[in-house]
Each structure stands twice: as C-alpha cells, then as structure tokens.
C-alpha cells in the first residue's frame, strides 16, 4: 500500500523571514541582556577612552530590539493578510472548539496518552504558545522602552514614560524585564524540542518546512473533519 503525501505550502516567505529574524533578534537580546544584567569581569590595561565593549553590548541590545519590533509589526500585519496557517485565527483561542483542540494536543503530545488530532500548520497548542510569546514580547517592549524612555529624545520610546510609574519605579520595571527573559529561554528549549519531536514522530519535514515552506502531509488528513473546516466538529473519542 502506498501512502500518499501531499506537498503543501504552509509557511509563506514573509512568515519564514519573520521567524528567523525573530529567532536571531531574540537570541541576541537574551545574550546581550544577560551580559547587561551581569557584565563580564574583563581586565584590561587599556584606558577607558579606548574601550567601549559594554556600550556596544547595549547598542546591540537596542538594535536587536528595534529589529524585533519591525518583525512583530510585519508579522501582525501578515496575521491578517497571510494564508490560513499564518492567520491570527490559528493563534488566538476564540471559542471552546479551540480550547478542546488544545486539550487534544495536550493529551496526545504532551501527556502521551491515547488520543488523536489532525493539523497541517501548527497544532492548536503551538499556535496558542506563539500567542503567549507575542504577549511576552509586548511585555518586553513595554518594560524595555519604559527603561529606555528617559534616555531618548525620540517620541516612540519616549511615549513609554508612563511605565515606570505603573510598575512603581525603574527598579521594578527592570526586575520584570529580567524575569521575563527567562521565560523566553524556557520557550526556546521547549520550542526546539517540540520541533524535533514532530519531525521525528510525524516525519512531515517539520524542521525544513521553516526553511522552504513546505510540509508533506498524508492526503487523508485533508479530509479529516478537524482540518477541513470549522463547521465540521467531531470530538475524537478513543
């Protein structure tokens, strides 16, 4: 019996570009952020006027933040004009059906219990986790620009001047910014693992799909009620 796979274009070019720029900038932000929080003890005979490494680290941090901001703006736009796999509808739970889907993914993939779900893009839980990531990025922008607001003359960061007061001073803002960073580290660990997990156990080309945009999905999946459309809802009973 030959199992037929369909080559399906899931991740459009803007989605992939956004993904990798986001990955790059977030990794850069984490590394430079950790260094800013606890600078290396570099001993040097050079005069202070000859050295600017810490200033450069901070510059890189701010640069990466602006890159991330640009990417987020494009990605949010694409969530409204892109294909259905990139749509905001695949990310934000709006009804109980979405939550039930998340439940099935949890059951099947996370708790490794008997269960079943079908999807072509990312699954419901993954979609939801990217929405949470988006909210965390927004929180990072708020706290980050909040700390930045007082050293700038540009209106964009300056418009976050209210943040310090909201959180009760720069110290608290910094603490929140710092703690949230660790959630990004956790996200990266879990995200990378689950990509490998799906690649291994589904063999649809999960990893390379973020490079070339294509996944290989069994033809039957396209006919399953879960994938076909939202009007056909069938709770999977095992």
């Amino acid at each position: 019996m030959i199992r037929r796979l369909r080559r399906v274009y899931v991740w459009e070019l803007p989605v992939r570009i956004c993904h990798w720029l986001m990955a790059l900038s977030i990794v850069a932000l984490i590394i430079t952020g950790i260094l800013i929080g606890n600078p290396l003890a570099i001993q040097s005979q050079a005069e202070a006027s000859q050295s600017f490494w810490f200033g450069s680290i901070r510059f890189t941090h701010f640069l990466a933040a602006y890159v991330l901001l640009g990417v987020i703006i494009v990605r949010v736009y694409w969530a409204f004009v892109g294909n259905k796999y990139a749509s905001w509808r695949a990310l934000i739970p709006r009804n109980s059906r979405f939550w039930r889907r998340i439940g099935r993914v949890l059951k099947t993939d996370i708790f490794l219990m008997k269960g079943h779900y079908e999807c072509i893009g990312h699954n419901a839980l993954a979609g939801f986790s990217y929405f949470i990531l988006f909210l965390l990025i927004v929180l990072m922008f708020i706290t980050g620009f909040g700390m930045y607001a007082d050293m700038t003359t540009w209106w964009l960061p300056k418009s976050f001047i209210w943040v310090q007061d909201l959180f009760g001073g720069d110290f608290a803002v910094r603490e929140i910014h710092h703690l949230t960073m660790w959630l990004f580290v956790v996200f990266i660990v879990v995200h990378l693992y689950l990509v490998l997990y799906h690649d291994q156990f589904e063999a649809r080309g999960e990893t390379s799909s973020m490079m070339n945009g294509y996944k290989f999905v069994e033809v039957e999946v396209f006919d399953s009620p879960e994938v076909k459309g939202e009007e056909v809802v069938e709770e999977v009973v095992e």
Binding site: I42, A48, S51, F52, W53, F54, G55, R58
Partner: peptide, 9 residues
C-alpha cells in the same frame, strides 16, 4: 558613566 560604557567595573 564612561567606565560603565567601557565595561570597566
């Protein structure tokens, strides 16, 4: 402050 930017702590 210049020592901060120079990374000298």
């Amino acid at each position: 402050r210049p020592f901060y930017d120079a990374g000298l702590f």
